[in-house]
């Protein structure tokens, strides 16, 4: 048995020292070949006591396996290192690439539209250069009425105007399709407002409306509450009466201030509430102007400012940032 132990010590030492494939080859021949040293030990078995033979044989076999595996492993390692591929530091910089971003207003639109798509609303877009009929008359704004003051328009040389809200799409869709209708309409709008932290001559809105039989304020509330929950999480909401010419009854929707949790802060002007949209039941006059029967159909509509929602979501305090396109600003979005 000491013979085996001696051989094992010697072989493992040599294996450890071997640093070339040639040396490995020599070791294979010396120990493992047909005329190698292990074979030599095997040939001594018959000379042993029958009682020792089995154990002796087992010992040689174990050593054979140990050496074979050791040599193969070492051989593979040496082969890899022979390919001359040094290891790399994967933490180094990559090949230079250009980084881009989607504008925060687009990201906000996508998020909002996805919620309404899930509910079954479809997207329809309308022109920005619009006719007075679709922007005002069809929406029950009487000519020469102070309700138009809040929507000071840019008038165009071609007799049209720049739409002051996305609501004209309501009239366009109702004029061309029979209910049921469930539509959201995103897009740019324009008002003659001097640009400041909360106003811009161009801004973005999302209009939505549902027209079918038996639609009431209850469905309006259910839809809006679902939307707010998806967008802002579990927040208190309130539906506050208001006035819009194209809805009756009309309301504004407030959500519990996302900054102070309703306790009152500067953003919510100490009220604890943030106004996020206007809504209401579509005025029968709007149905009539679009050629729909206000007795058969009812519906609700709502509209929200995308900048306002993006400002709340991203904690942005100046609307001008959206249109200045500073790279340091854009870079913060993906």
């Amino acid at each position: 048995m000491t013979q085996i132990a001696k051989l094992k010590t010697e072989a493992l030492e040599l294996l450890e020292k071997a640093s070339t494939l040639e040396e490995i080859e020599e070791l294979k021949i010396r120990f493992l070949s047909r005329k190698g040293e292990l074979a030599g030990l095997f040939s001594e078995i018959p000379k042993l006591d029958p009682a020792e033979r089995k154990q002796f044989g087992q010992g040689i076999n174990d050593l054979k396996i140990l050496l074979t595996e050791g040599l193969e492993e070492k051989e593979a390692t040496l082969k890899r290192s022979k390919r001359d591929l040094p290891p790399v530091d994967i933490t180094r910089d990559p090949f230079p690439f250009r980084k881009g971003s989607v504008h925060p207003l687009s990201a906000t639109y996508i998020e909002i539209i996805n919620i309404f798509k899930y509910l079954g609303f479809i997207v329809v877009e309308g022109p920005e250069i619009e006719e007075d009929f679709y922007n005002f008359e069809g929406l029950n704004f009487p000519p020469d009425h102070p309700a138009r003051d809040e929507q000071d328009s840019f008038f165009m040389q071609n007799g049209k105007l720049l739409r002051t809200h996305t609501s004209p799409v309501q009239v366009r869709v109702m004029e061309s399709q029979e209910p049921p209708l469930a539509v959201v309409s995103p897009g740019k709008c324009y008002r003659r407002d001097t640009i400041d932290a909360s106003h811009s001559s161009m801004f973005n809105q999302l209009e939505g409306f549902l027209v079918d039989e038996n639609i009431s304020v209850a469905e309006l509330k259910g839809t809006i509450k679902y939307f707010i929950k998806e967008l802002f999480g579990e927040k208190k909401t309130r539906f506050r009466p208001h006035f819009f010419p194209f809805t009756e009854p009309s309301m504004e929707v407030d959500v519990e201030c996302v900054f102070c949790g309703g306790k009152g802060c500067n953003v919510c002007k100490k009220t604890g509430w943030l106004e996020i949209m206007g809504a209401g039941m579509i005025d029968p006059n709007v149905f009539i102007k679009a050629g729909l029967d206000p007795v058969k159909y009812s519906g609700f509509a709502f509209g929200m400012g995308i900048e306002r929602i993006a400002m709340l979501r991203y904690d942005i305090n100046d609307m001008r940032l959206f249109f200045e396109n500073d790279i340091e600003f854009l870079d913060q979005f993906r």
Partner: peptide, 17 residues
């Protein structure tokens, strides 16, 4: 928009008027 942003461009929104 996402495809183009992914290729290294920043989306802008500038005033049409």
């Amino acid at each position: 928009k996402h495809v183009i942003a992914g290729r290294g461009f920043h989306e802008t929104v500038t005033l049409t008027v």
